[in-house]
Amino acid sequence: MDNLLNAVVLLLNFLVVPALAYGSQLALGALGVTLIYGVLRFSNFAHGETMSFGAMFCILFTWLLQSWGVTLGPLPTALLALPFAIIATALFVLATDWLVYDYYRVKKASSLIFLIASVGVMFIMNGLVRFIIGPEDRNFADGARFVFTARDFKEWSGLAEGLALRSTQLITIVTAIVIVAALFWFLNRTRTGKSMRAYSDNEDLALLSGIDPGHVVRIAWILAAALATIAGVLYGLDKSYKPFTFLQLLLPIFAAAIVGGVGSPVGAIAGGFVVAFSEIGLTFAYKKFLAYLLPAALVPDGLVQLLSTEYKFAVSFVILVVVLLIKPTGLFSGKTL
């Protein structure tokens, strides 16, 4: 019985909890991609860099607050800086819309032109981030490190395996739930949210009903910037902030959005968790887990790791390929919000 419990705790500690946190971050990122796709009809390649940009602003504001001696006690100061970072990122994103995308929208350019423009924006943002904060690794999580440590858990339960919950993991999951609930309330209950859904569903009909397209587009960018900033900050708190990781995060985020069905918010969330659990599940070494469950003679020699961790992206890519082959519209097939 103890062995079974130990095995379960092992999985919880190294697979389920990290995957829940990572999945929440991906889901928030994918929601932003899906929102922009639903309203503006293009895949925004600059979304990863928007996350990076938001996280950078958050770090700068955190440093400012810390230099004033303001902290949040056990919680990271970054949470206090987050609203300011969201405002700064949203302003920047609105500026890019005004300077870059607005022209093509008026011209009714093809979605591919938007996509290329977004690649241009991506590189400019990437350059700005490296220019402002530099390419180094930044760790900006302060406050309490753990909600409970592996040692606490072992003493409490008397098991050989420990279960730790880092405060950043708990914050990630709780924030993601709150944000997603707020987003769904906004899309389904408020007038602006409903007009966004209408616009995404049928642009011409929405225009005929007197919906202001400029307003809808602006709200979509602000929401995308907010989601991206939150996702970027949570990712940075949970791991650490490195400017170059965000280009690599683009692939799992797109995979999550496509798995769920681009344009579908529920799909984006489901997709985020599908990608996170597959990525961590396939790169997890199951040897110790099997050792708890199997008789000693049957335990394999190797690590029982299906894929080495360097090929994390390959997992998102394979998921992407499978979805494109079998169900290109995604799990929650939909083009509308």
């Binding site: 992206f313 890519f317 992407l320």
Partner: peptide, 21 residues
Amino acid sequence: SDYLAIATLGISEIIIAMLKN
């Protein structure tokens, strides 16, 4: 049309990861 863009982005990252490892 943008699926090709995403797929090529993915395959090039994987090729480079393979060459490094």
